[in-house]
Design a protein around this nucleic acid. Structure first.
Length: 290
DNA sequence: AATCATCACAACCGCCATCTT
DNA sequence: CAAGATGGCGGTTGTGATGAT
């Protein structure tokens, strides 16, 4: 009945990945593609849970990942998307090519959350923070006010304003006391085809830092990307591009995605297998073929 | 120089929808 | 159809790096 367990827990290594383990994982996926995560560790000679391998690959080793802090524009887009999607990090991440859900989640918790609080904006509701007195009034007048911020966080909501991250504390003048109401699917649907456009465009265009803002504009102005895929079509951009379900597609995509940037130098059809077997790791994130 | 606090992020955990047997 | 595994997701934790005192 059912399938075999993903890993037998016994003898499975945990904790930080070593360079050697990274090398094994990369070599295996480059040569064989992403097949079955359960069997991958064994085949790749890793004493890791398949789940751990998948996480390591998707969050850290994938060659199409960007590294480094999120740009201002990316940050703005994250806020905008978070206002609609809540903590659905994977969905948010799918709109930011090269970024992972984990990375965005971390950035949200360590940077954006604090910035919003500093600006007097509730990072959960994306509404201006209400003081204690007002909070009491709101909670006493609302029958469903017992719902925690966590539950509210799970639901998409319509932004009442366009939030712009500022490095300074000024311009905290929008003090609507609106309580965000969770939308039903019908509301989501209708909203997705109307007010979302305005909100997205506004927030994107308001960001003004040169190339990044141009990039963001191009992302935001793509209605099929923002509207259709956000609510109707969940095909992730990054995953669709980096499909390694087969060895062939894996190798092709490696090249398409500038695997050289990742550290893989060019390889030929004839010697690629041998070359990749001798991948040499210089540090945690740099690999090259010798 | 030592200690403590904070930051940044990789990794783990548990849950859930889906899939397989 | 039921049981159980898989893959994916979001929340949380652990830990090294950095800054402040």
């Amino acid at each position: 009945m059912g399938r075999q367990p993903c890993c037998d827990k016994v003898g499975v290594k945990k904790g930080p990945w070593t360079a050697e383990e990274d090398k094994k994982l990369i070599n295996f996926i480059v040569n064989n593609g992403q097949c079955c995560w359960r069997t991958l560790p064994k085949l790749a000679g890793l004493k890791r849970c398949g789940k751990s391998c998948r996480l390591r690959w998707t969050n850290y080793l994938r060659p199409d990942l960007k590294r480094g802090l999120l740009s201002h524009s990316e940050e703005q887009l994250v806020i905008d998307l978070h206002a609609r999607l809540g903590n659905r990090w994977s969905k948010i991440a799918s709109r930011l090519p090269g970024r992972t859900d984990n990375e965005i989640k971390n950035h949200w918790n360590t940077h954006i959350k604090k910035k919003l609080l500093k600006m007097g904006i509730d990072p959960v509701t994306h509404q201006p923070l209400v003081d204690n007195h007002q909070q009491q009034l709101v909670s006493s007048s609302s029958s469903s006010s017992s719902s925690s911020s966590q539950s509210a966080e799970q639901l998409p909501r319509q932004p009442q304003q366009n939030l712009m991250i500022k490095d300074t504390d000024d311009d905290n003048k929008n003090n609507n006391n609106g309580v965000p109401a969770p939308m039903n699917s019908q509301q989501e649907s209708s909203w997705s085809s109307s007010s979302q456009i305005t909100s997205t465009e506004n927030s994107c265009c308001a960001s003004g830092d040169g190339d990044e803002s141009l990039l963001l504009d191009s992302i935001c102005s793509d209605e099929s990307l923002i509207l259709n895929s956000l609510w109707l079509d969940d095909t992730p951009l990054v995953d669709a591009l980096w499909d390694t379900t087969t060895p062939t597609s894996c190798l092709l995509d490696c090249q398409d995605f500038g695997i050289h940037d990742f550290g893989f130098n060019s390889f030929t059809d004839t010697d690629e297998q041998n070359s990749l077997q001798t991948l040499k790791m210089e540090d945690k994130t740099h690999y090259h073929i010798v």
